[in-house]
Design a protein around this nucleic acid. Structure first.
Lengths: 165, 165
DNA sequence: TATTTAACCAAGTACTTTACTAGGTTATTT
DNA sequence: AAATAACCTAGTAAAGTACTTGGTTAAATA
């Protein structure tokens, strides 16, 4: 199966998007800062998410990304599928040619497992994640951290603004 | 999560072992031929399986490997765990330090998924796999192929034996 | 007792993927 | 016109996978 940091990053970024979609589009720079994912890597991931029409983009200043559907219509499995080729525990992508053209001994086992994982992740929407206590807690912490960082800049700029008067 | 060809190979090899354990220990050379896995790679995998006491070895001619427990006491999850470090969908191995020392937004989601996968694979024993129709079918095919290959040698050696009389 | 067998062991390597960097161009707002 | 942020391409260090090579050791067989 293909479920690595790549898929985790994609889901984390999409959840960040879902959490901050109140005030217009969210820039990848913001997500990068909050979630600690490199901006350029996010760009590559969002290119794939856009191709699968999970997000839509707005260019220019104040631009960024928006979910292309409602919270409860985007599921974790779709996000993971978008950035990896597939959520698939078999080595042959279900083609039954695992062992030099023929079915390998454990082919069906991995098919069953793939279904299991896919079913599980297909049932979890971004809306569900947004409403989870543990998610809200982490999101809160991240917003506080962001305020502290932004606060330092804001304070100095406020001071500068006062000095100018 | 860490569920790649490595784990698949290990489970396939262990299932082969379970299927052919009637007539004494099974050599890795046999498993290599039947399952199309390189002998040296199998040696590396079985070194780990032996460390986890899933198999025991018999050296010398006629030697090979045996399951160290009954069929129904060895589970797929144990095999996968033995060759990889862990069956773990989180990036931090459950240590909650996914995002530079702190918990990432989706940490709990991946914990849930890990549990899900582990539960699923913990319930499937080698005995269960051995009794599956699809497994028996593939095993039958592989044994036929082996007989064809061995048959060529056996036939010529039988002819040779007859000529000697 | 010599030979064969097969486990056991160590080092290295081609290949792939991941996560990221660098260095752009294009569209849109201010 | 300048700034912003999406969009795009190429390259790369690090890690893991699957495998090869070339041994050594223990046990059965001839």
């Amino acid at each position: 199966m293909r479920l690595t940091t790549k898929g985790r990053y994609a889901v984390t970024a999409m959840l960040d998007l879902a959490l901050h979609s109140d005030n217009g589009p969210v820039s990848l720079a913001d997500i990068s800062l909050r979630q600690g994912i490199s901006l350029s890597y996010l760009e590559q991931l969002f290119a794939k998410l856009r191709k699968q029409t999970l997000v839509s983009s707005v260019r220019g200043p104040g631009g960024g990304y928006r979910l292309s559907r409602a919270n409860d219509q985007i599921f974790v499995a779709q996000i993971v599928d978008a950035v990896n080729e597939s959520v698939d525990a078999t080595g042959c992508k279900g083609k039954n040619d695992c062992q030099s053209g023929t079915t390998c001994l454990t082919h069906h086992l991995w098919c069953d497992l793939s279904d299991q994982i896919h079913d599980f992740l297909s049932q979890i929407s971004l809306a569900q994640l947004v409403s989870r206590k543990d998610v809200r807690l982490v999101a809160q912490r991240q917003e506080n951290e962001q305020l502290v960082h932004a606060g330092e800049i804001d304070q100095s700029s406020k001071i500068n603004a006062e000095l100018l008067n």
